[in-house]
Design a protein around this nucleic acid. Sequence first.
RNA 1: GUCCCGGUAGCUCAGCAGGAUAGAGCAUCGGAUUCCUAAUCCGAAGGUCGUGGGUUCAAAUCCCGCCCGGGACACCA
Length: 527
Amino acid sequence: MKEAITSELKQRWGYEVVLEKPKDKKFGHYATPIAFTLAKEKRKAPHLIAQELAQLLDNSPLFEKVEPIKGYVNLKLSETFLDQLATQALKKPQEFGKANLNQNLLIEFVSANPTGPLHIGHARGAVIGDALSRIGKHLGNKITKEYYINDAGRQIELLGLSIFLFAREILGKEVTFPEEYYRGEYVRELAKEALEVFPKEEFEKEEIIPKLSEWGKEKMMERIVSTLKEVGIEFDSFVSEKELYRYWDEVFELLKANGAVYEKDGKIWLKSSEYGDEKDRVVVREDKRPTYLAGDIIYHYLKFKRGYDRYINIWGADHHGYIARVKAAIKFLGFDPDKLEIVLAQMVSLLKGGEPYKMSKRAGNFILMEDVIKEIGADALRFMFLTKKSDTHLEFDIEMLKKEDSSNPIYYINYAHARINSVVEKSNFSYDEIVEVELKGLNEEAKSLLFNALTLPEVLQEAFIKREIQKVTDYLKALSAQFHSFYNQHKVLGSEFEKQYLKLFLTVALAIRVGLALLGIEAKKRM
RNA sequence: GUCCCGGUAGCUCAGCAGGAUAGAGCAUCGGAUUCCUAAUCCGAAGGUCGUGGGUUCAAAUCCCGCCCGGGACACCA
């Protein structure tokens, strides 16, 4: 819709025009402050320019009214134009909102360590990454969703050790726990299971620890994947950190050749400070073991070799300090670091009835994503995380999401969708009959509702381009509110506008259905 | 100390590539149901946009200083 309008304006005015949404409905559907911009160049008062521009649109079929006010040109779309767009959308519902952005994108998200179950912070990144992927795909991009598994290093050793110790404790042996180990209840459960899987005598010796590490990691990965699946998230590929290290020599040679590294105190350092990092970073320790950063360098090297147009990483905000060094490494490897974009998901804190959410016993010290799903359901979980910008600290009350009324936006939106479904079912018209009817003589509220339903495509684009998915949830809430209001005001069945209103409603339902689907939520037909 | 994020209505947050009277939801108060789902709607009230400067026709929005809150500053991942 927006494209059709801007191209019409460009044709008639000869300028690229920025369309804005006026603050007040009475100013029409769109407005442009272009006269202000031209005022300097033309040395003429904005309101005069606006008047001239308005006249040029006198006989355009797109607009019902073009009005210059104080330098703004306010545009009101014609009913015929809106009707055309609605018909088009309803005839090819699966096409609604699609675009041709045509980029090949790699989105990496979650990537939680396989040393424990997912917690609520992971959930935020997971949901954001998934929704972004869905929207991106709808807009014509090719999207690959990837999970980077940190299955190497000390943490995995620690996991094995922790299972080992818990198992021995269960066996009634004397155990002294070190300062650092995984102490969540889930480790005890793993230990119990390990005792069934491995012969008991193996727990006499520490040799079993690496086996437990490997086994425990697999177990945790399975659990993580299944939790994600519960909220409808699936990945296209998993990359194992451990398996990357066979490329280390190749990458290291390249870094050396590009003058990216040097030796000092027996360690190998990356000159990351040359490209914006605070200081240089160790990539190989004195004992020759590569650091975590080395793994990430290999990972991004291989990523960039795969040749995507852009790479999006969704990281927890606590990793922000990491951005500079990874980008520096990418630069040293001869790739363009600007192609890597980091979306930071800020911290989450939960309340329950105004009190801080009780920590799950099983988790030890954090809130399990699994528990929250059980508590409020996958849809509500997804929705609440998508309502807030990813980079703002988020605090919310779980009780709110359990309520089944307007304080729980997901119910509110679903209710709008279900109401429409119900009215359409009760009418005697078929879908095709309704789509064919011409919209004519509708009142202002109806036209405004129709217009807003047709805005979904531009909302999706803005949300995707800015990586701000809350624009979609905001939109859906607003559209539903407008619908509910209309519904209360106008009787549909039996009215002389019955068919027309049904067409309007179907368009609203389509926007809701498509919008929710792209957030990973299926719109309810009945409630 | 350095870096990142935030500070807008009682609460949770939009708005921020400058633009028309600062918005929404929740909570509060008052109304609406012989009628397609009241899981809804209508109305009221609620603001020094953290603070002090600057940029200009125009600043919640851009720049600088300061204050407050959260986070990060590993040879851990």
